[in-house]
Simulated scan of single mutants.
Amino acid sequence: MSTIGALYQQSMLKHPYGYALYEPESTKTLKPGSCGYLTELGQWTPLIGEDQAPINLGDASSLSRNGLTPFEQFYRAPTDTRSWGPKISGQVKQRKVELDVGAGLIPAGIPADVGALYRYGNEGGFGAILMTQSPVTKEFVYGATAFRVWCKENSSTILRRWPDVRDRGLVIVTSTYATEFAMLNAWKDTAKELSVGFRAGVVGIGELGPSCTWYTAQGESGWVSVAAEDAEERKVVFFGGLYFKYRRLGAMLPSSHVFSAGPVEKAKFRAGDPDANEFQIVDEREDGVYEVMVTAEEHGEMIDLPENEETGNVEYDDF
């Protein structure tokens, strides 16, 4: 049976921001360049180096201290900020309540002078809603192929030093969407309705929404909130990047064994990069030496660094 974290991630694929975290993570441990994996519960776990600091491709000293090769193509894009309306899963419907009918429609916990009141619900199955305080900050780094090349060069070392990657796979983060404060509610296999009041008079039905304050009704269970603890921190609600799966081959083993890190958003690789989809490495364990096939998938938003005149222009298919 899928965990609520996995169901939440899958239900939020309608929004083009990557992997939705049921437990939003701190930007101190999840940022562009971070390396790690996801547990069965959907929790982000960074690779921790000998210095007890998370591995990040943007930190050359972190790589060298842990026996990893340098990454010389870490190009940050300008930081982008935006205002979001509520992010809801595919089965949840948003309905505006006409307040001019009477103040009695406003649930306890929501101010009587609220500018707009909306109800969110579904008739069964899984439902989720994410509320984020504005601004939502987007951080990302250019490129895709360079990250795959680096992984190919370092996979044997990574498997030796962080063996959990064999089962979980490896994620290299390339984009994050983070906020100072977020609330979310997720439920499964039951009909449910939630009330949310907004100070702003109009709430965007689609991806865009106003920068406004919201209120939830008393007695409606399931709301979970997270907040940044200091001025330097944000909470990541979506992230994107490259996901690498490791599959032990059968040539050196009596029977093959397949590993998987669980469901992620899948997308085809762009054309023009024939070696990107998969490569082979050697995995040395205490019980022997094995050939391993590594396959990679992009999930979330990826932006290629524009080619210059010397290297030529390369056209890719959208994903």
Results as ranks from 00 to 15, higher is better:
V294G: 06
Q280F: 07
N277R: 10
E310P: 00
A251Q: 10
K266V: 15
T311H: 01
E309F: 07
L249Y: 03
P263R: 12
G204P: 03
Y290S: 01
M252Q: 10
E265I: 14
E278V: 05
P274I: 08
M252V: 06
D304P: 09
A200Y: 01
A261I: 06
A261Y: 05
T213Y: 02
E310Q: 12
E233R: 01
G204V: 06
A271F: 00
V196I: 15
E220D: 09
R199H: 10
S225D: 03
H257W: 09
N277M: 10
S256V: 11
E233T: 02
M293L: 04
E297T: 15
Q280E: 09
A267L: 14
Y215K: 04
R199Q: 13
R285D: 06
L249W: 01
Y243V: 15
L242N: 06
A228Y: 04
E298P: 05
A276T: 03
D304Q: 08
H257Y: 11
L249T: 12
Y290D: 01
K235P: 02
I303Q: 12
L208G: 04
F239A: 01
Q280A: 04
E298G: 14
K266D: 13
E207M: 13
D275G: 08
A228I: 05
E307I: 03
P306L: 10
D230E: 04
V226R: 11
S195Y: 14
R270Y: 08
G222W: 02
G204F: 04
N277T: 08
M302C: 11
A227L: 08
V237D: 00
M293Y: 00
M252P: 00
H299K: 04
S225Q: 12
P274E: 06
W214E: 05
V258I: 14
G288Y: 00
V289W: 01
W223F: 07
L253H: 05
F244L: 01
A200T: 05
G262W: 07
V294N: 07
Y246T: 08
V203L: 03
G197Y: 03
R234S: 10
W223R: 08
E207N: 11
S211E: 15
H299E: 06
E232V: 07
A296H: 04
E298D: 09
V224G: 02
T213I: 12
D287E: 09
G206R: 09
D273V: 14
T295G: 01
G201D: 13
V202L: 14
K268C: 01
R270T: 13
S195H: 15
N313K: 15
K268V: 02
N308F: 06
S225N: 07
Y246D: 05
R199E: 15
P254K: 15
I281T: 11
I303F: 10
E298N: 10
V202G: 02
V202H: 14
C212R: 04
A231Y: 07
I205V: 14
G241Y: 02
E265Y: 12
S195E: 11
W214K: 05
I303N: 09
Y215A: 02
Y243Q: 13
E310K: 12
G250S: 14
G312W: 04
A231G: 05
Y290N: 02
G272D: 08
D287F: 05
D230R: 01
F279G: 05
G204L: 05
F259R: 08
P306K: 12
L305F: 14
G204Y: 05
G222M: 03
D230G: 01
R285H: 09
E309A: 12
E307W: 04
G240R: 11
E286Q: 15
E286A: 15
M302Y: 06
S256L: 11
N277K: 11
A231E: 14
